[in-house]
Amino acid sequence: MEIYSTLIAILESGMRLSVPLVFACLAGLWSERSGVVDIGLEGKMLVAAFASAAAAGATNNALIGLGAGIIASIGFALIHGFAAISQRGNQIVSGVAINMLAAGLTALVGNAWYAQGGRTPPLEGNARFQPLTWPGAETIDQIPLIGPVYAHLISGHSTLAYCALVATLLSGFVLRRTRFGLRIRAVGENPAAVDTAGVSVTRLRYFAVIIAGVLCGFAGSYLALGQAAGFLTNMTAGKGFIALAALIFAKWRAWPALWTCFLFGLLDAVAIRLQGVMVPGIGQIPVQAIQALPYLMTVILLAGFIGKAIPPKASGLPYVKER
């Protein structure tokens, strides 16, 4: 029974840890599906985390915080879009710049405003997204086996966690079933085909980049208002890159993105759980080995040793009409 409750606890923790990954991964999915490579997920999440924490702290309203996070993230997304789409600049360089700018600005402004070494004052109450307890969770929790599943895995997550599920559903649906989705899928593969079909490549790509901004806004806000209680310097700690790895692993598709992020979140939860724990028969499992797995698996996958991850053909390339 104790093993079971440990299992539930790890699953629960994995779900929580995977929420920001899901948002960020979907953000990358929209951007890259449209042909704009985005290694600036990390930076966008970070500004969103900061802006959401600052706004939520000032207004004591988590929703306003979320709104501010999204707006800040869109602002950075537009810088990237402008560089990548309008200026036809190098998208990798732009992404690196966004990450550094975000890391520097959030820490600088955070320290100047709050004088707490870059962090915002702790948030509580309405300034945070509280866990949603589903009806009867406490009672049902008592039922063996199924009870904890309902109480801890289905119920009890932050509103934003459920939003991540909705975002996956929507992304998958819109890409698969709508006109906009079809055009996005096409423009990342062959922008010339979209152009000759009478559709603006520029507009499509800006839309996609803005959607990426919105989703990173959710990701960052979840970090600051859901998972933690406020902003911490560099609190994304590489999650943007894990999301990028997950995107590759999911081969740029929405539902696989969700599962991959959950897997990576779970690995993280396991690593935390196993810290310093002696596993019978094996001894101590190095936490770092588990932490390295997402990166390692991505490298192996990209190199085509197991399956093959092929990015959208036109991603990373500015669109120039041929003469």
Binding site: R179, L182, R185, A193
Partner: peptide, 21 residues
Amino acid sequence: MLVEPLSVIDNVMLGAEGGAM
């Protein structure tokens, strides 16, 4: 001017989808 990973119907529809859905 074709999008190779997409189906024939998707390619034919591109730009002439006949509605948001």
